[in-house]
Nucleic acid binder design. Structure first.
Length: 217
DNA sequence: ACCCAGGGTCATA
DNA sequence: TATGACCATGGG
């Protein structure tokens, strides 16, 4: 049904922007940390926070668990929501270690891993799936706000569907391929920032021929 | 002075 | 199921 269209959109995005090299991180645990810190937050600010963690030498589950919560909060402060994020990182680190470390944790069966992640405070479907896709490298399609906005403006969805419904839609319409999902999500974020913000800048949009949104102006 | 950013939780109806 | 308030920093 939409298989053709979804693949065509990917093709155009890749042609327009090229490979995005996601997720930008030096280790799987850094991916997990970034996934929490970037919640409703500009990536720039996340980079500062992660820089602080590296500088302090605490970018490991062991160190995060050791560090007093107030100290952790001070380090991740540039990322905003820093008190709850410090708490969230703590509980994530605790879960990782209780399953034998990052490697063992990420090697759990994907369904089981997803269940554990979702049971943690402050980890919802998008954060969990980002970890599954970019840290555990499992073929899970990540649905974020840009995905909703872009595809609703293209006319394929309303935009307010439940998370699982959209994830199922994308996974049904695309080949089950981890690299494809990684690149697709990254391209959607790139395209969203560039052309599909709340205040749209449709001029020069690589998807304009497919977009039913411009007419509404 | 606004608006927004690579969400999630909780209370309410 | 579906809104709304809240969390907080930094850039445009």
């Amino acid at each position: 049904m939409e298989e053709r269209a979804f693949s065509e959109i990917y093709r155009r995005l890749f042609l327009a922007y090229g490979p995005q090299g996601w997720w930008p991180a030096d280790s799987p645990f850094e991916v997990m940390v970034g996934a929490v810190l970037t919640q409703a937050t500009n990536w720039r600010n996340v980079e500062r926070a992660i820089g602080n963690l590296k500088e302090a030498g605490v970018l490991s589950p062991e160190a995060v668990l050791q560090l007093p919560e107030e100290e952790l909060a001070r380090l991740v402060r540039p990322a905003g929501f820093y008190r709850q994020k410090a708490r969230r990182l703590k509980s994530l680190a605790r879960a990782v270690l209780s399953h034998g470390g990052t490697e063992a944790f990420l090697s759990l069966p994907p369904g089981k891993l997803r269940e554990i992640l979702l049971s943690l405070p402050g980890i919802g479907p998008e954060t969990a799936d980002s970890i599954l896709l970019y840290a555990a490298e499992r073929p899970v399609f990540v649905v974020d706000a840009y995905t909703r906005r872009i595809f609703s403006r293209l006319g394929f969805i309303r935009g307010n569907e439940p998370y699982e419904e959209l994830r199922a839609l994308f996974e049904r319409c695309l080949p089950r391929d981890t690299r494809l999902y990684q690149e697709y999500h990254a391209l959607l974020v790139r395209h969203g920032k560039e052309h599909c913000r709340a205040r749209p800048r449709c001029h020069g949009c690589p998807l304009r021929e497919l977009c039913s949104f411009e007419k509404g102006k």
